[in-house]
């Protein structure tokens, strides 16, 4: 089974500040990391490879420093990686991002399955996966909870829906976006780091794409226009507890004490 996993570099902390005047994210001095949801996608791919054979390739779009997460994917077990990067891709919305990634994926020539995380922790749109599939004209399923079975031709999956779980058979080639906790992601390995230190990472700019029409990429290819970025209003956390009255009362007392209300 030849699997492609889409990964993205995101800010390493959730405490990202927005410049109140320019509305731009303050990224200076902030660490970045692989989107945590993508780790589940990569783990799913590795589990499938371990069971059914094949290969796991990763693709990312981002600035040149996003090469770090491809290296990290190698440390986790990916076999091959592409970084789609070009100044002309800057300012891409979900549509232009999906298009560039779809173009990059074409470079891999053949694949059975594309896996993406459910969403990213910075954009949170959950749209890029399905849009890639639409561009590639392949079937796709979002919010996959569990892979029940895989054959050479198809997958059988559980898909999370608001009030129920759907069991679905999907033919290859296809794209799935996986839920958090589908598998426990493994950690990057030091041994693999040494082993893959000099492994090639292919860099693709607009000139390597099959479609070189600049109007389809970056800001020019993005129908979404961002008017303003602002920090969300502060929310008050809520917790729902269930259990027996006695246990709840104890829990409540403990919580109130912890919050120093009593």
């Amino acid at each position: 089974m030849d699997i492609i996993v889409c990964i993205k570099q995101v800010p390493g902390t959730s405490k990202v500040e927005v410049d109140p005047e320019t509305g731009v994210l303050v990224r200076d001095g902030i660490d970045s990391k692989m989107n945590p949801y993508d780790l589940y996608a990569l783990e799913t791919a590795l589990q499938l490879k371990e069971e059914y054979g094949g290969s796991v390739k990763v693709i990312s779009m981002g600035p040149p420093q996003a090469i770090e997460i491809i290296k990290e994917a190698y440390m986790i077990g990916a076999d091959e990686g592409i970084l789609v990067t070009d100044k002309k891709f800057a300012g891409a919305d979900v549509l232009a991002t999906s298009y560039a990634l779809a173009q990059g994926i074409l470079h891999f020539k053949r694949f059975d399955l594309i896996i993406t995380g459910k969403q990213t922790t910075d954009g949170d749109t959950a749209q890029v996966g399905p849009e890639i599939a639409e561009y590639l004209k392949i079937p796709h399923v979002s919010n996959v909870l569990r892979i029940i079975k895989a054959t050479k031709k198809h997958l059988i999956l559980d898909m999370d829906m608001p009030d129920s779980i759907g069991t679905i058979k999907i033919l290859f080639p296809c794209l799935i976006t996986v839920e958090k906790d589908i598998f426990q992601p493994r950690l990057p390995s030091y041994k693999k780091r040494i082993l893959t230190m000099n492994r090639e990472i292919k860099i693709m700019g607009i000139s390597q794409m099959a479609d070189k029409d600049e109007k389809k990429y970056g800001l020019a290819g993005s129908p979404t226009k961002v008017e303003r970025i602002f920090p969300p209003e502060e929310k008050f956390d809520r917790e729902t507890w269930t259990g027996s009255g006695e246990a709840l009362a104890e829990k409540m007392t403990k919580k109130l004490k912890e919050l120093k209300f009593i």
Partner: peptide, 9 residues
């Protein structure tokens, strides 16, 4: 091996 745990998650 030596596994690396470098993010909050």
């Amino acid at each position: 091996d030596v596994f690396i745990s470098d993010t909050d998650e």
